[in-house]
Design a protein around this nucleic acid. Structure first.
Length: 789
RNA sequence: GCGGAUGUGGCGGAAUUGGUAGACGCGCACGGUUCAGGUCCGUGUGCCCGUAAGGGCGUGGAGGUUCAAGUCCUCUCAUCCGCACCA
């Protein structure tokens, strides 16, 4: 027996797999019989640096599943690529002082090497990167399809502006009022921007959550983000102006309690209502410009316009105020204020000394609301809406918190938006056959507040595809989340140069059977991708409605309480591979705890997993020197082996837990080492190597050979536990008195209740606690007898 | 404020259907092998009382249901995460 040499073994097998293209999976040929297949995917990395331990956990989990499924006889598609366009990669390049293309490709190279060294079973022949023209050509193509269908549009709107990254951000990427990448406080600016009409899909995005197997918390986050709320739109008339202003409310039952009326500072109504009123106009201008964060500070501010609105239920004259606690983007930008039954309205009323009228009593019935007095508020909602509806002053309405997705960025490193602007023809899409619109190489790519491409005249100046006259190209680029909304489709048919993918091939592999990635993408990438798939389904490009059938979030790997975001000294995967080998790291990261919970990174105990691999190495070699285990041999060791198979299979396959299988194999190895010469030693060793193989693919192959096999263990069918071997001849019977364990005895399995009770009463220890009293008896067959006195 | 997750030895964690709490590993202690050290092997290790036999306590806290609760119910505390003036 030679010493265990992780590096020699790992390099050897990694070379073999690369040469033999072991993990490359061909697409089905037309007419081929449908075979069992599985699409395993983990979220692709940003090449903004090299991998950290969080990635190692993510991709190792995917790898274990990949091997496990392969060995179930399933063809597993498991591709990889790079989210190489966009802020993360570009900011990394700026920091490193190089060109984004150069830095990005350098990082990609480093990551590929790390992935190779971890031994992950990846089909590299399907690799795609967002920044390659062969990929973004089709990002542009898909954009144009959206545009054609009216789902992409340009609009002047208040948007989130990051003063540090000098670009617009989507709502999903403003976190606590700050930029998701750099942490700068985001400002509000009114700019003409590109949007995707994700709001049109709010209902289906909500409803179809019921059809997918996702963690409930993720569904909750999306549900909350979409924020569907049902109510009514009620029309208020503005005195003297002959103007009808609708408001949205979820509580039409409180209409009689409305005592004032408020409009948002950004509302176009302000100009009409406050003409010549400088106080109001100044307030509106100043508060509209306040940063979102400051505006969300609780203190209520506002100004009275001097005008009144008429409450349609009772003709009451409600003073109209302008106040910045009313948002332009939600509902109609105007509200009826019911201070008795709304905390914000109450606070405002108290600040400005406005009347408060209670219209629902403690029993939940309407008061001060004739003719609806006495009705339960839940019923009155409907009744008042119907009543006003008959007069044409109300109709049921639904509102969403979800805003359309702002996806244009004033940055260089992204997919060019393929439209041109012509004086004659206005905005003109670039014809499909002229794609891709190539991102030009520029020297000065740094953000300046206006898109860097705008000053690149070679790029900007073009001709109009419609009239042939002079035109200018769009200078904004796309959000990186556009790329990641469809990359998983490109993997299915990555070299197609006639279409983004062939529909039949995408329909064959998709939807993804198992997706693994961080929960930080719950309302960004995971929502956008669902939207893209639904649109593409509506466009007839594919035959399914959801991209990710089953989703799992790995926990964060934390260092000093903070999420790992880049490789830090001492904990970089490369250094750990150098010191301990990939197999030991793979075991370690899985063994640390439940994969969906956060873990604090400590290197304590990583030596232990190396020690375990060495122990396995030694024990298996010792067993390999033994004669082959005869069929039908029945020893405690052979039973332990079958038990291990059953546990590991259930844990990975059904429960989707990855730490306890390692404990199970450790137990088996412990028993094997304590049973030298056991006739089942070879069988136990083979079992240990076989079920550990998804975790430790390199050393498993080496040990499989040592056990005398020519085949690869990764190609061996997953072992099956012999049910007969799981059945025990004797069981340990727990004897309780008053629910407390007093004795344990070994008895034959399958005894009758009477026999079990007899055993219990025969126990000295039980008798000592019974003191001669008979007692009532509870029996759990093969497990427990509890005597209650 | 709303929504969600978590809480078990000195530490990471296990306990899958209400039925032996603490598997597996780290750490620690003692012993052995090798001996420059580490490696490696063995034994022990929830807490308290007791030389021992044995007994008591024990899954953040308080109640409850049950023959039996880490697991179910009610309340509560702590930590973390998501949302947050969304009418």
């Amino acid at each position: 027996m030679t010493e265990y040499d992780a590096h020699a073994i790992e390099q050897k097998w990694q070379s073999v797999w690369a040469e033999e293209r072991t993990f490359s999976v061909p697409n089905p040929t037309p007419g081929q019989a449908d075979e069992s297949h599985f699409y395993m995917l983990e979220m692709l990395p940003y090449p903004s640096g090299s991998l950290h331990m969080g990635h190692v956990l993510n991709y190792t989990l995917g790898d274990v599943v990949t091997h496990y499924r392969r060995r179930q006889g399933t063809t597993v598609l498991r591709p990889m690529g790079f989210d190489s366009f966009g802020l993360p990669a570009e900011n990394a390049a700026i920091k490193d002082g190089g060109h984004p293309l150069e830095i990005t490709e350098r990082n990609m190279k480093a990551i590929r090497t790390q992935m190779h060294r971890m031994g992950w079973a990846i089909d590299w022949e399907r690799e795609v990167s967002a920044h390659e023209p062969t990929f973004y050509r089709w990002t542009q193509w898909i954009f144009l399809k959206f545009l054609e269908r009216g789902l992409a549009y340009r609009k002047e709107a208040p948007v989130n502006w990051c003063p540090n990254d000098l670009t617009v951000l989507s709502n999903e990427h403003v976190v606590d009022g700050r930029c998701w990448r750099c942490g700068a406080v985001v400002e509000t600016r009114s700019m003409e921007q590109w949007f995707f009409k994700i709001r049109d899909y709010a209902d289906v995005l909500l409803d179809d959550l019921a059809t997918i197997d996702w963690p409930e918390r993720t569904k909750k986050i999306q549900t909350q983000h979409i924020g569907r709320s049902e109510g009514a739109e009620i029309v208020f008339q503005i005195d003297d102006l002959d103007l009808d202003v609708p408001v949205f409310t979820t509580r039409p039952d409180t209409l009689f309690g409305a005592t004032f009326f408020v409009i948002a500072p950004e509302s176009s109504l302000v100009q009409q209502l406050a003409e010549g009123n400088d106080e109001v106009l100044t307030y509106a201008r100043i508060s509209a410009a306040r940063p979102t964060e400051e505006r969300a500070a609780r203190e209520k501010s506002g100004v009275f316009t001097g005008r009144y609105a008429t409450n349609p239920v009772n003709g009451a004259k409600l003073p109209i105020w302008v106040a910045d606690y009313v948002l332009m983007e939600y509902g109609t930008g105007a509200i009826m204020a019911v201070p008795a039954h709304d905390d914000r309205d109450r606070e405002f009323a108290e600040t400005f000394d406005l009347p408060i009228v209670t219209v629902i009593d403690d029993d939940g019935r309407l008061i001060n609301s004739a003719p609806f007095d006495g009705q339960r508020w839940q019923d009155a909602k409907r009744a008042i809406t119907d009543w006003l509806g008959e007069q044409g002053k109300a109709e049921p309405s639904v509102n969403y918190r979800l805003r359309d997705w702002s996806f244009s960025r004033q940055r260089y490193w992204g997919c060019p938006i393929p439209v041109v602007y012509c004086e004659q023809d206005g905005m003109v899409p670039v014809p499909l056959d002229q794609l891709p619109v190539l991102l030009p190489e520029v020297d000065d790519y740094r953000p300046k507040g206006k898109p860097p491409l705008a000053s690149n005249l070679d790029f900007i100046r073009t001709t109009c595809p419609t009239c042939g006259g002079p035109a200018e190209r769009e200078a904004d680029t796309m959000d990186t989340f556009v790329d990641s909304s469809w990359y998983f489709l490109r993997y299915t048919d990555p070299r197609n140069d006639a279409a983004p993918f062939d529909r039949a091939i995408a329909d064959y592999w998709m939807p993804i059977d198992q997706y693994i990635g961080g929960i930080d993408h719950a309302k960004g990438h995971l929502l956008y991708s669902r939207f893209f798939v639904k649109v593409m389904n509506d466009l007839g490009l594919l035959g399914f409605r959801e991209p990710f059938q089953r989703l799992f979030h790995q926990g964060w790997v934390k260092l000093d309480g903070k999420r790992m975001s880049k490789s830090q000294g001492g904990v970089s995967p490369n250094e750990l591979i150098d010191r301990f080998g990939a197999d030991a790291i793979r075991i370690y990261i899985c063994f640390q705890g439940p994969a969906d919970q956060d873990m604090d990174w400590t290197p304590d105990g990583i030596e232990a997993t190396v020690r375990f691999v060495r122990r396995l190495w030694r024990v298996v070699h010792e067993a390999a020197a033994q004669p082959a285990s005869p069929a039908g041999v029945d020893t405690p060791l052979v039973r332990k082996a079958h038990e291990t198979i059953a546990r590991v299979t259930d844990d990975i396959g059904r429960r989707f837990v990855f730490n306890t299988p390692i404990s199970a194999v450790m137990e088996l190895v412990n028993e094997l080492s304590k049973a030298p010469g056991d006739p089942a030693a070879r069988f136990a060793a083979e079992t240990a190597v076989s079920v550990l193989q998804p975790y430790t693919p390199h050393v498993a192959e080496e040990l499989w050979q040592a056990l005398g096999h020519d085949e690869r263990v990764m190609d061996e069918p997953w072992p099956r536990a012999d049910q007969a071997m799981l059945h025990h001849e004797t069981v340990q019977l727990v004897l309780q008195v008053n629910g407390k364990v007093r004795d344990r005895v070994e008895v034959p399995a399958g005894l009758s209740e009477a026999e079990l009770i007899e055993h219990a009463r025969a126990s000295e220890k039980v008798r000592a606690h019974l003191a001669g009293v008979e007692g009532r008896v509870v029996v759990v067959p093969d497990k427990l007898v509890n005597i209650v006195v």
